[in-house]
């Protein structure tokens, strides 16, 4: 893990209140894996005080062949992200990362189902890129994407450019299916276009309510599923003990989202 001051390459609004920031940080980019995150210090003032965790959206390769930049896709939700959204190209930003364990990719995957809710789509783009480049037996890669409204459905074009089949649900019905992304998952699993067994894997990121539902549905089908959790945290070093989650293998002891996660097997989590 590195603590470095990085130069911002771009910081653009991709949809109302959603931004994508690219930062030049070879140290982090060359070691980052899909699902890992970065702690961002948005200001050197004392308020806001703590770093903010952001999952890595994309890991970009420079022409030289080494990873050199990462992208952070974020939604403006408070003081910290508001400050971030006002940052400009060439500004410096204080980063700590890459943090945590990313998604584990079994290279024998034939079918991969990605499930994203709102800003939870963020890690799935680099994941899709990694799956495509590493899984030679891959037959089908599908993204089920949900959002409150049209503006909350991000990155569809980027996924389609990779050849990913994208199905969309919005709660207001303005785009795709009217309803929740879990409806799409139920529908997908019921239709016969997935091959049951160990070669189908599911990867999900989104709000806890969505992950809880996805975990339940997946458990019934016996498909392996990895989910990426979000949590409040102060340090991301395993010291503050703020970002804990109860798991089945942990017994009485909580696990730490920063060190043991943020990606967990869905059947590991005991939902509060």
């Amino acid at each position: 893990m590195y603590q470095i001051l990085s130069k911002i390459l771009f910081n653009k609004e991709v949809s109302p209140t959603y931004y994508n920031m690219g930062v030049d940080c070879p140290e982090i980019a060359s070691r980052a894996a899909p699902g890992q995150f970065i702690m961002v210090r948005v200001s050197n003032q004392l308020d806001p005080l703590l770093r903010r965790p952001f999952v890595i959206h994309r890991i970009q390769r420079a022409n030289t062949g080494s990873d050199s930049q990462v992208e952070i896709l974020y939604k403006v939700v408070g003081k910290g992200t508001e400050i971030m959204s006002e940052m400009k190209e060439c500004d410096e930003i204080d980063l700590l990362g890459p943090v945590g364990n990313g998604y584990r990719i079994d290279t024998n995957i034939r079918t991969a189902v990605l499930v994203g809710g709102g800003i939870g789509v963020a890690p799935l783009l680099s994941l899709a890129e990694r799956i495509i480049s590493q899984c030679s037996k891959l037959k089908s890669l599908i993204l089920l994407l949900g959002g409150k409204g049209r503006d909350d459905v991000l990155c569809v074009e980027e996924f389609e450019r990779l050849g990913v089949e994208v199905r969309v649900a919005t709660e207001d019905g303005r785009l795709g299916h009217r309803g929740l992304v879990v409806d799409l998952l139920l529908d997908y699993l019921e239709s016969r276009d997935y091959s049951p067994g160990s070669s189908t894997h599911c990867f999900a990121c989104g709000p806890d309510s969505m992950l809880k539902e996805v975990s339940k549905i997946i458990a019934e089908k016996g498909i392996s599923c990895q989910i990426s959790l979000e949590s409040r945290m102060a340090c991301a070093l395993g010291a503050c003990l703020g970002c804990i989650v109860r798991t089945k293998s942990g017994g009485d002891v909580y696990k730490k989202v920063c060190k043991d996660g943020p990606v967990f097997d869905s059947n590991e989590i005991i939902w509060e």
């Binding site: 703590l50 909580y254 509060e272």
Partner: peptide, 24 residues
Amino acid sequence: PRTGNPPPRIVETTGGMLNSIGLE
């Protein structure tokens, strides 16, 4: 050993943070 308090355990406030780790 102690398990500590349930989550959420941390929240940022103006110029500070509240924690209720519970001596895990």
